[in-house]
């Protein structure tokens, strides 16, 4: 069973349609790239998978279940915004994650914080933006989830941090876990991807295995993207 499955998924806000007839699958042990220009519906799709939005039509399933309390136990979200409460420290946040998520690996989180030289006792609001993003990433990746949803994890981050984030994602690979990664920085991320979905104006414009697309088009995924989404 695919970890994440969308069947003719639709979402509209009033009159504007954010997603139309989106069907895709994310399998365990594979990294899926959700690629598209700004406003193409990537974040909407991710929010639907988290249960933060309700679909207007179609279905979305995580390990066969509709998004809800049960799926939140096996889904780890890294939002594209800073969502950590400012008055808490990384240590307090780890304790909170441990409290609420059975699959949280506190040891791994501590190790990663240590690796990056982040003071676990310092309150989040005193940290720089980059450090806050790293803490958020560490918390998300320290969960042994079935589905990782990473919304623009490398945008707005310096190149060294990007490399670190990409290698963290790769070393977190687990054979039964699927990673769905949305980004518009494709050239940086394409080596990471097993499968690719091009999302344009809420529709799936193209999809397939990354190497398959390279073979078929003779181009990199980045070049293919520029071609498909030429202004």
């Amino acid at each position: 069973m695919p970890v994440l499955e969308c069947i003719e998924l639709e979402k509209s806000y009033g009159r504007s349609e954010a997603l139309r007839g989106v069907s895709l699958k994310a399998e365990g042990g594979r990294i899926l790239g959700l690629l598209g220009p700004n406003g193409s519906g990537k974040t909407t799709l991710i929010k639907l998978a988290c249960g933060l939005l309700q679909p207007s039509g179609g279905e979305i399933r995580i390990c066969g279940l509709a998004p809800g309390v049960e799926t939140k136990k096996i889904v780890s979200l890294l939002p594209d915004r800073l969502s950590l409460p400012g008055y808490m420290s990384p240590a307090a946040l780890c304790a909170m994650y441990e409290d609420f998520f059975e699959d949280f690996d506190a040891g791994r989180a501590e190790r990663l914080l240590d690796e990056l030289g982040i003071d676990p006792a310092q309150r989040v609001r005193r940290m720089s933006r980059g450090t806050r993003e790293k803490v958020q990433l560490i918390l998300a990746m320290s969960r042994r989830a079935r589905l990782y949803l990473l919304d623009e994890p490398i945008s707005g981050v310096d190149p060294a941090a990007r490399d670190y984030i990409i290698s963290t994602i790769m070393t977190n690979y687990a054979p039964d876990a699927a990673v769905v990664l949305s980004t518009h920085l494709i050239s940086e991320a394409e080596r990471l991807l097993d499968d690719v979905v091009f999302l344009g104006a809420g529709r799936v414009v193209m999809s397939g295995g990354a190497d398959e697309l390279r073979e078929r088009s003779g181009k990199s995924v980045d070049a293919l993207f520029r071609e498909v989404f030429k202004c």
């Binding site: 988290c50 933060l52 939140k72 969502s83 950590l84 409460p85």
Partner: peptide
């Protein structure tokens, strides 16, 4: 702050109704 701002992304991802 907790439910309707950016923090909501964290709070509503908790496995709680």
């Amino acid at each position: 702050k907790s439910l309707l701002s950016d923090e909501g992304y964290l709070i509503f991802s908790l496995p709680v109704g």
